[in-house]
């Protein structure tokens, strides 16, 4: 299954943005602690996965993969 770099980038940006917003909202006292925690529980796994995928996701112009010895 091919990973689309764009999709991964969107996912990464979205999850990172959500976490940053929740963090700021928490420190300024805009949302209660439990709400911030709920957001982190949802967004943190997505961040971990998309970050890892983003490092390796292809841009569309890759080399042939090396498949033989």
């Amino acid at each position: 299954m091919a990973m689309k770099r764009k999709t991964v980038e969107y996912g990464l940006t979205a999850s990172a943005l959500i976490i940053v917003i929740a963090w700021i909202a928490l420190t300024t006292g805009a949302i209660p602690l439990w709400a911030a925690e709920a957001v982190f529980v949802v967004a943190f796994p997505a961040l971990v996965l998309t970050l890892g995928l983003w490092w390796r996701a292809g841009g569309g112009e890759e080399d042939f993969p090396f498949i033989g010895y």
């Binding site: 299954m1 091919a2 990973m3 529980v41 949802v42 943190f44 796994p45 997505a46 971990v48 996965l49 970050l51 890892g52 995928l53 490092w55 390796r56």
Partner: peptide
């Protein structure tokens, strides 16, 4: 491991394969 190239095996149940990873961290 996070730098390694990654895909979903052909025999796998793709949604569950990926979804369970998210559930685990969550």
């Amino acid at each position: 491991f996070s730098f390694k190239s990654t895909w979903v095996p052909r025999t796998a149940s793709a949604t569950l394969f990926v979804g369970i990873v998210l559930v685990a961290i969550a």
